[in-house]
Design a protein around this nucleic acid. Structure first.
Lengths: 121, 121
DNA sequence: CAGTATCCTTCCTGATACTG
DNA sequence: CAGTATCAGGAAGGATACTG
């Protein structure tokens, strides 16, 4: 991997942040937990149509390791596990807001379709 | 904030934006062009140590198609091609700023290392 | 100089089946 | 209910040689 020395192990802050939010589901989970508060595993799964169980659990674990998500286990039968945002998760979500607005603007602008660049003549 | 209604093909704005910035190099190129202004192909390559020619050109083309980057060709020998940000590119970079700050804070916080979550006993 | 073309490897992602 | 295990397919990313 190309570790360029600029800001420690990262090129700069954007790299560190992207590293943590990139992936298909992370920003969505962040948003889901922020919007709806603490959620159980099954609730999350339901709120994220199309996600596979593997991806859901894998993504949650990564986010937990990154300190964005807190996982609370209740030892019951049947099991109950609740996920919530840590304060870092909350702040990250806040930092994501302008980007979300930009995305919405982009969608409204032209339907956000990717344009085919014509070959130069 | 927006409701969880799918906005067209996207979940919501964040998805549309992530779609455009995700990838290993896009945010870096954005930052490079914003910081240093118009850059030639070779200059960009130099400023992004570790990127392969394939990735550089591929990423630039995608960003051009997404309306973030403008490509200006000067028909000379040897060839000269200059890349610059469009206004959308600039605004995206601005929208990325809080995320960058978050990333820098994260780095300073603990070295930003990903923590191993111990197995529950 | 500014790319193309090719090949190769690794990472992502999802489906499915099974367990405490 | 909340996971784990396994497998497979495709996409993303990279090294290198070549060209107008």
């Amino acid at each position: 991997m190309t570790e360029q020395v600029r800001c420690g192990p990262y090129f700069c802050g954007i790299d560190a942040a992207m590293d943590v939010v990139s992936g298909k589901w992370k920003s969505l989970i962040l948003w889901e937990l922020d919007e709806k508060g603490t959620r159980r595993y099954g609730e999350l799964k339901h709120g994220l149509p199309g996600i596979s169980e593997k991806m859901l659990i894998q993504t949650l674990r990564e986010m937990e390791a990154d300190g964005l998500v807190h996982r609370e286990v209740y030892r019951q039968v049947p099991p109950r596990v609740e996920y919530s945002l840590t304060e870092h998760g909350v702040s990250l979500n806040k930092a994501l807001e302008p980007l979300t607005s930009w995305g919405i603007e982009r969608i409204n602008r032209v339907g956000a379709s990717r344009v085919d660049i014509p070959e130069p003549v």
